[in-house]
Design a protein around this nucleic acid. Structure first.
Lengths: 327, 327
DNA sequence: CTGAAAGCGCTTACAG
DNA sequence: CTGAAAGCGCTTACAG
């Protein structure tokens, strides 16, 4: 496993210099005579040569590695983003390195530095948290795409949905259905995405005549959104008013809320409608009671890679808000 | 982003040669005078030097990258394996590259070749499928750990559970409960793991007095185990005998079977008990009706990395069967 | 105890 | 149209 077929092998076989082989490997066909090109191509074929990305990376000061730094792979939404990004990168000839920060800034920084050392050619930050390293990355101008959560320490290319509009759509849905006691559940330490979903929801309800105090708001704590929902559920179903409609800013929060609702003997749907924002395919199988705004995570990968390619070409890429499906 | 602090920078600052700095960076402290060591350490600190893994990889013929080649990241069990492996590798100073083969042999091969070119120092194959490239890898003796499914084209280090025993445990459980019409649901194109679970289940039932025809066996097709279960469910609940107990070889199959059961108006549990082998944490939240053999996926990562480290040290590592929890 | 030198596989001005 | 040479950052015999 320690023998690699190098340019030199091919060059020797074709009777030319490594420079010539290198150029041809890199597609500069016109700079060599057709006869030479043919001979080199034959030699490549014959010995089964494949360019060594490590040598190339060292020389170019940049590898074909793209770092995906995600907050939590156990979250199915992030797993789907990772999976679709991986597929899109492979198709474009890149290799994805996966880093799971568990939402911890120190780990995020550790990875950011390690990836820089690996000379990665790009960064995909899914639900990034503020950190020193992120600020440095931001300032360095390295090719970076933020996903789901916007850059928490500046701005930069973003792939996601219009979170405000999504929240508002749920508000309209509840209002049109004639619901009177709406609630919203979100994580205590929310991202820009959570916040926008909540504020879009609240703004639209106000617009449609609700007073702020008529809307139940519950944040929850926990290391997973399941816990967040379960914890917030305790307060939501324990107050004087029981909501007849609940927006959960993620599927997993809805699962947690639902479990609490079941424990309290509530019928869902029926006593109370729950809508979440995520719409993971799993819902249809294990949570038919749940209505969702469907975020097209499976196409995130393609958009992220398209964004990176624009940036590599020096073109600008501000943000890409993908359409979601509801109902 | 194109400036990297190199050994040369440190050497210049410390007034020594790069060789000396290199040795010290690599922990060969005793080969330099204490004064030199101190000076070099200071310089490293002062300029914030970090070894460049690319240069190192090229020289050593081996990177610090470990390839994780998994069949399907959308499966929560694999996502958990990926996540725990990633954490364990990071702790050990390695970086994980993630490849999702979607269970396709050509893609698996593409990745295997690409990873070889990246000079990865190890392979983690989760649910590998037979392929040309896998045979080559197998023959090459490269450090490899197979996870969940054993090497389908030979043998090699394995991390998983005793699938046969797990299947048998479920058979005992059903028998002790007094169930009369057991069934088992598995994917048509099964892995060694599926097969072992099924055969362990069947063998134990036979031992306890069932005849083969008294056990309902249903395989299912589909691109996901959810589909597999749903499809097999149609046949299971459509026959002359309705089972009173079902073993599903994975959680997702159980979700699919359950959905079909609900459509047929069956009560679960009650009319029929379902037990699955996986025991993903999500079950407690979205499938309280499901009893499971719990596979400790969260500790797979540590075992996998421990296995790789044994192999790297030249020690042998046959297989590691982890204990599962049931009930 | 320390350094000069070669080389890992590659790319890229530069000279011819 | 082609090649010799330098260099990306590192490690490692080898010589002193």
């Amino acid at each position: 496993m320690r023998e690699y077929i190098s340019l030199a092998t091919v060059a020797a076989r074709a009777g030319v210099s490594v420079s010539t082989v290198s150029r041809i490997v890199n597609g500069e066909m016109r700079r060599a005579s057709p006869a030479t090109v043919a001979r080199v191509l034959d030699a490549i074929e014959a010995v089964g040569y494949r360019p060594n990305p490590v040598g190339r990376a060292l020389q170019r000061g940049q590898s074909q590695l793209v770092a995906m730094i995600a907050a939590n792979l156990d979250n199915p939404a992030m797993a789907t983003i990772a999976s679709s990004t991986e597929a899109a990168l492979r198709e474009a000839g890149y290799v994805m390195v996966l880093c799971d920060t568990h939402d911890r800034p120190e780990l995020q920084d550790e990875y950011l530095y390690a990836m820089r050392a690996q000379m990665v050619c790009g960064y995909v930050l899914v639900a990034a948290v503020p950190s020193r390293g992120l600020s440095e990355l931001s300032a360095s101008g390295a090719p970076t795409v933020f996903v789901s959560r916007r850059n928490p320490v500046g701005n930069g290319p973003f792939v996601g949905i219009d979170d405000c509009a999504a929240g508002a759509a749920v508000a309209d849905y509840f209002a049109n259905l004639g619901r009177r006691v709406p609630a919203v559940v979100f994580p205590r330490l929310g991202s820009s995405a959570s916040r926008d979903r909540v504020s879009g929801f609240l703004a639209k309800l106000r617009e449609r005549g609700w007073s702020d105090k008529a809307i139940i708001q519950a944040d929850g704590e926990g290391r997973s959104h399941l816990q967040v929902g379960y914890n917030a559920g305790a307060r939501i179903f324990g107050g004087s008013d029981t909501p007849d409609s609940i927006l959960c800013v993620s599927d997993q929060i809805a699962y947690g809320v639902n479990r609490r609702a079941l424990e309290r003997g509530l019928k869902i749907p029926g006593d109370c409608d729950i809508v979440s924002i995520d719409g993971t395919p799993l819902n249809q199988w294990v949570a038919p009671w749940l209505k969702s705004i469907e975020i097209p995570y499976a196409v995130y990968g393609a958009e992220i890679v398209a964004g990176l390619q624009l940036i590599w070409r020096g073109e600008s890429f501000g943000e890409r808000l993908l359409p979601y499906k509801f109902g």
